[in-house]
Simulated assay, not measured.
Amino acid sequence: MKYKLHRKQQLKTDLETAWQFFSSPYNLAVLTPASMKFKVRSALDSASIYEGMQIDYNVTPLWGITMGWQTEITQVVPLRSFTDYQKKGPYKLWNHQHDFVENEHGVLMTDTIDYELPFGLLGDCVHRLLVKKKLDYIFDHRFKVLEEKFNT
């Protein structure tokens, strides 16, 4: 079964600052709970994303098991949006779109993730028991980090 995670957050910053922060792959570790031991493995040729960029990571999502994850940046509209797509990793599908809209309060940042687990019905059970809660935990943590960085 395919799932969708949708989050919005108002950031009290300008569009250029928000874009610079989110478009740097190295800031993913800042946004991820420390318990997940997120690490960029790729030797990146740019500090900012570009269409076609592939990024390799290590992450420890559950039970202390470290796994590799590879994403490709499939779409970039500077200062507006970008999309990362999982090429290798734990999901059958992971497509994460990041949107940025400047407004009178700063920047409204939106995450829209379409995802699916492998293994059919078993994957759906694992989603209900573990994955949904873990994703909520990750994005709740991300919200708090962004509140501290941009809104205090």
Rank of each mutant, 00 (worst) to 15 (best):
residue 152 T to P: 07
residue 55 I to C: 10
residue 80 R to D: 15
residue 125 C to D: 00
residue 45 D to R: 08
residue 73 I to V: 15
residue 147 E to T: 08
residue 118 P to N: 10
residue 60 T to G: 07
residue 65 I to T: 14
residue 121 L to W: 11
residue 107 V to G: 10
residue 104 E to L: 11
residue 147 E to I: 02
residue 72 E to Q: 01
residue 37 K to F: 05
residue 24 S to H: 07
residue 109 M to I: 13
residue 52 G to F: 05
residue 79 L to H: 01
residue 114 D to A: 03
residue 53 M to C: 12
residue 96 H to V: 00
residue 136 D to L: 04
residue 81 S to M: 14
residue 151 N to Y: 06
residue 7 R to T: 12
residue 74 T to V: 09
residue 43 A to F: 09
residue 111 D to G: 04
residue 75 Q to Y: 09
residue 88 K to V: 12
residue 69 W to A: 09
residue 139 F to I: 09
residue 23 S to I: 00
residue 113 I to K: 05
residue 68 G to F: 14
residue 133 K to C: 02
residue 93 L to A: 04
residue 28 L to Q: 11
residue 54 Q to R: 15
residue 131 V to K: 01
residue 86 Q to N: 03
residue 37 K to I: 08
residue 99 D to R: 07
residue 148 E to D: 14
residue 73 I to P: 00
residue 47 A to D: 15
residue 64 G to K: 05
residue 96 H to Q: 04
residue 72 E to L: 00
residue 34 A to T: 11
residue 70 Q to H: 00
residue 31 L to S: 00
residue 47 A to C: 03
residue 87 K to C: 08
residue 91 Y to K: 00
residue 101 V to S: 13
residue 150 F to M: 12
residue 81 S to K: 09
residue 116 E to H: 02
residue 96 H to M: 02
residue 82 F to W: 12
residue 110 T to I: 06
residue 74 T to D: 08
residue 53 M to N: 14
residue 67 M to E: 04
residue 151 N to P: 02
residue 147 E to L: 03
residue 98 H to M: 13
residue 105 H to R: 13
residue 46 S to K: 03
residue 45 D to A: 15
residue 94 W to D: 08
residue 30 V to E: 14
residue 52 G to H: 06
residue 23 S to H: 04
residue 127 H to I: 06
residue 68 G to A: 11
residue 121 L to M: 15
residue 76 V to C: 12
residue 79 L to T: 03
residue 19 W to D: 08
residue 6 H to I: 11
residue 63 W to I: 14
residue 102 E to F: 10
residue 53 M to Y: 13
residue 60 T to I: 11
residue 106 G to Q: 08
residue 9 Q to R: 01
residue 50 Y to L: 02
residue 123 G to R: 00
residue 146 L to V: 05
residue 70 Q to K: 13
residue 126 V to P: 08
residue 132 K to D: 15
residue 137 Y to D: 09
residue 35 S to R: 12
residue 151 N to E: 04
residue 137 Y to G: 02
residue 114 D to M: 07
residue 134 K to N: 04
residue 3 Y to I: 04
residue 146 L to W: 01
residue 96 H to N: 10
residue 11 L to E: 03
residue 40 V to H: 07
residue 83 T to P: 00
residue 62 L to T: 02
residue 102 E to T: 11
residue 64 G to H: 11
residue 128 R to S: 09
residue 107 V to Y: 09
residue 134 K to E: 15
residue 37 K to A: 14
residue 22 F to I: 07
residue 109 M to G: 01
residue 7 R to M: 06
residue 82 F to H: 13
residue 10 Q to H: 01
residue 12 K to N: 12
residue 51 E to P: 13
residue 8 K to G: 07
residue 8 K to V: 08
residue 18 A to N: 00
residue 58 N to F: 04
residue 123 G to K: 06
residue 2 K to C: 02
residue 144 K to A: 05
residue 81 S to H: 10
residue 77 V to G: 02
residue 2 K to I: 12
residue 103 N to G: 09
residue 36 M to V: 10
residue 31 L to V: 05
residue 105 H to F: 14
